[in-house]
Nucleic acid binder design. Sequence first.
DNA 1: GACTGGCACTCGATCACCGAGAGTGCCAAT
DNA 2: ATTGGCACTCTCGGTGATCGAGTGCCAGTC
Lengths: 338, 338
Amino acid sequence: MLDDRKLAILRAIVTDYVSSQEPVGSRALVDRHNLGVSPATVRNDMAVLEDEGYITQPHTSAGRIPTDKGYRLFVDRLAAVKPLSVAERRAIQTFMAGALDVDDVVRRTVRLLAQITQQVAIVQYPVLSSATVRLIELLVLTPGRGLVILVNSTGRVDQRPVDLLGATDEQVADLRGRLNAAVVGLTPSAAVERLSTLLDDLPPELHPVASMVTATVMELTTADPATRVVVGGVPNLTRFGDQFETTVKPVLEALEEQVVLLRLLGEAGGTGDVTVRIGHENPYEPLQSTSVVASAYGHADDLWASMGIVGPTRMDYPSTMASVRAVARYVGRFLAEG
Amino acid sequence: MLDDRKLAILRAIVTDYVSSQEPVGSRALVDRHNLGVSPATVRNDMAVLEDEGYITQPHTSAGRIPTDKGYRLFVDRLAAVKPLSVAERRAIQTFMAGALDVDDVVRRTVRLLAQITQQVAIVQYPVLSSATVRLIELLVLTPGRGLVILVNSTGRVDQRPVDLLGATDEQVADLRGRLNAAVVGLTPSAAVERLSTLLDDLPPELHPVASMVTATVMELTTADPATRVVVGGVPNLTRFGDQFETTVKPVLEALEEQVVLLRLLGEAGGTGDVTVRIGHENPYEPLQSTSVVASAYGHADDLWASMGIVGPTRMDYPSTMASVRAVARYVGRFLAEG
DNA sequence: GACTGGCACTCGATCACCGAGAGTGCCAAT
DNA sequence: ATTGGCACTCTCGGTGATCGAGTGCCAGTC
């Protein structure tokens, strides 16, 4: 159905449209790319491509622009891998050098991604499934109100307030000792398992407060860390100040909702390589005129979390994908080395 | 110079322009407000107001719009205090009810402010100067790399990685004990003072690692907490999609820079009541076509931090000021009660 | 002396119109 | 299968013409 020349024409339309932001006609196409055929032939091919749904024209006497389906074919089969520029490589190094802790790494990563892709960047906090519990601290703040602090072997610290149900200081100290003895050194999943059996070994008077505390610890070891997402590069949205309603507004709204962001990244970053969601492929309705380029990051088989960018469907996919891939790999390695 | 009628006219111009977003003429003015004089008289007065710099016209044969100076006079002398609506009062209660910890309070506050003002909201993390140090934890993560965790009496937890310079586990444990003995129960300022003399009491072999750690603790007790700011309601920027260059873009850029946000809030929130910076009064150049309404919040004399909103100069100042004031007071009380 | 009605004037906004230009689809010829 | 030619369509930019809101000024009135 689609011979090589038609594919070449589609590729040319995508690249030209992305760089010029304007519908591209048959004449301009043969001028800029040496296709070796006349505009009339190109027109015939374009008619076929339009029938097949790869391109469309905004109005009768305008050039063609790619459809979501066209971008999809381009990304899957036509895009040449574009190597990073030297400047971009250097940017990655300088941005990350001197990062202090995980927070800092995430902040720098989001800035970096936003800068080299010139899009809005989204980075999920790393969830280190191989990290182990380093310390559980249990504190009394005021009578009845306490605080659980969980530290894992990567230096990540999470805390949550807890109702101590009037336990005495001695009981709290006792419980702290038992908790640490039970789970320090375990992975989160192992710790959760161990905690669910811990209650049986406790003296009865500790049961009420212990169940409150273990429940909180279990929350901390599982759900919470994954729900943190950082965004950056929002001013990049101003670069396409047209399409206010279709692009800028929905993106801004999505950025306020952690849940939405996690869905965008989560479904996109499941596999090992860069994932692209184009327009309507997007799981979140209002973002159907934008694309998401995302990648999981981590080390070896240990995929920790996702990062990505969101931008207009008319973006430079090869460059963007290369950038996201490079940053994801670099940050993964950086975190693995500590 | 400005008699009562001229002031009434200025007030009418401001309110009409804010609600209609369009230059207001002499005819419309006498129609909507019963000024008891003819349009011609109003025109004469408007000419005077324009000479004095309170209003201006975008072009000949258009109505008048307030200048920054006009808004300033309005805010200072003409604005009637507008009580909150019942719905707003209820919103404040429901939004804050059930807040878990300080993080949660801040997140809810920023949402609340954004929703009832329909502007972009900025909330600084509270700095509780009366809070005392509750616990200092010192952990070894890997040989040489450690972590300092500081918990204060409000349940706030801060951490920072620290270089342990190859100290042994025993030395670390020793140091942890000494640190806690020294500063637990002290206010941050007292703790800093105490720490600076702590070194003298230590055995010499602890000196190198102790100075690293105390320096880190001192950073944690002073600088860091104040530098955290949360923003929300960014989609509200889309409500004035015109003025892309003058308003939306600069605001988005400012929101990415914590330093800028702190400057906006910091200089604005120094006093006890709501502060308004209109247009050029703003300390940050690119935001000179927007206004900032901010307030410190806290309890009694203990001012903890600031919150505020940023929006176009043409905003409903009475409502916005009332909302910011109400939220600031409520959150202050809420935090004081714990 | 302050206010008012009247009037000429200004200027942006809206609309219709027109020509230019880009681009297409189709068809007959190669 | 490809191509040159041609008629057709539709957007875009520019040009007047008109409309109406609003002003400034001035002479008249209370």
